[in-house]
Design a protein around this nucleic acid. Structure first.
Lengths: 208, 208
DNA sequence: TATTATATGGAACAATGTTCCGTTTGTCAA
DNA sequence: TTGACAAACGGAACATTGTTCCATATAATA
């Protein structure tokens, strides 16, 4: 589950001229910082102090700031990492389960992803340029991953064909954003309901 | 438009035993702070530094904290004040315009209110107890104000009868929460569309 | 007017994001 | 293998902002 060599190209510069390879120790620290950030954000939320993240990663604050010039850069990197994680789950589920089941499981996986991202919607709308690329990244990673699963399930005849992938993801996202004090299981049930909706189709002839 | 004597009962304690009247200078400063906060929040957002608000009000920070023990208390007070403002507009519009027009204008007024409140939805879900009373306050002030306008318009036969007031307010709210970079006029147009929807009714007999 | 509870202002403290810079270390050519 | 040096490191120091404290000033009252 430990992903090494998370390369630091944030998807912004064309990376045409490979200036130089990052030093091994630097790469190690970048990885450690990301892992630490993921852990700390998960437990303390995205407002956790950077010092805590640096400490948990076993590096100085100076090092943190060398790799993530602003706090928001670290948040964005962590978020991108989790999007990757979620997107990568799609082909794995597709290999292991029947199309309909893979789709259902992935939607729950996505719901879990959204649920832990409270405070991130806020960050996204903050206007901070560090988050500028994230919506595009979402489109590029999560949407195709989901679309593939959805198409397979449709092709297998396990779910109806008249739904839009983007719309569905938004719906799941809305259902999963929880208010403090909410039953955390509600979202799961609602998403499951949504999935059953996908599986349902009216009988060709009769009413009722 | 300058409302004096904004009394400092935050609607939490029963105010049964009137401990004592606030001193005149204190009341003056409370008013000045609220006005200042409204102005500063409007221009710099709810994250503006308290020092700026105190300075603009012409009082020391100590004074600010005496009346609003936490930053969030000031935010909540400002928010409550604007809800009052918005609610108070209802009877005024009702007196001046025909029921349907009054309803339409108030919905735009409410849309404007929501639009300036970016960052507040976040604050509300922050779990800070300073905001605990606000949802109830919303129910107590805005909803009845709107319900009255809506009922009048329905009674006058100017809008359809099969709509729920709460649902409508939520819809307007969703339409008005804008993302940075949005055309600020979009919300206005969408709300207008919604109002036209209220006015519409299907012809009793024919289809299309 | 004298007394006193209340209110005031702002220095000082605490938490946190960010910068700076002297020191350490990986990398590579010789 | 070794020397040179660009790159990376750590953490003290700085900046900003929320909050506390208290010596001083003032409105209310008798």
């Amino acid at each position: 589950m430990d992903d090494k060599a998370e390369d630091q190209n944030n998807g912004l510069e064309p990376q045409g001229s490979v200036d130089r390879r990052v030093r091994a120790d630097a790469q190690r620290n970048i990885d450690a910082l990301l892992q630490s950030a993921l852990a700390v954000f998960a437990t303390s939320g995205v407002d956790a102090p950077v010092r805590e993240i640096a400490e948990k990663a076993g590096v100085g604050i100076g090092t943190l700031y060398r790799h993530f010039p602003q706090r928001a850069d670290l948040v964005a990197a962590a978020f991108r990492h989790e999007m990757d994680s979620c997107a990568d789950a799609a082909p794995i589920l597709a290999a292991e389960f029947a199309p309909g089941e893979a789709l259902a499981r992935w939607m729950q996986r996505y719901a879990a992803f959204v649920a832990t991202k409270r405070g991130l919607a806020t960050a996204l709308h903050s206007g901070n340029p560090a988050f500028d690329g994230l919506p595009a990244y979402f489109q590029a990673r999560l949407l195709p991953a989901f679309q593939t699963l959805l198409d397979s399930a449709i092709a297998a005849g396990e779910v109806r064909a008249d739904v839009d992938a983007n719309e569905l993801l938004n719906a799941v996202s809305s259902l999963s954003r929880q208010t403090p004090g909410d039953d955390p299981d509600t979202a799961r049930r609602m998403v499951a309901l949504l999935v059953d909706g996908l599986r349902y189709r009216a009988r060709p002839e009769g009413n009722k």
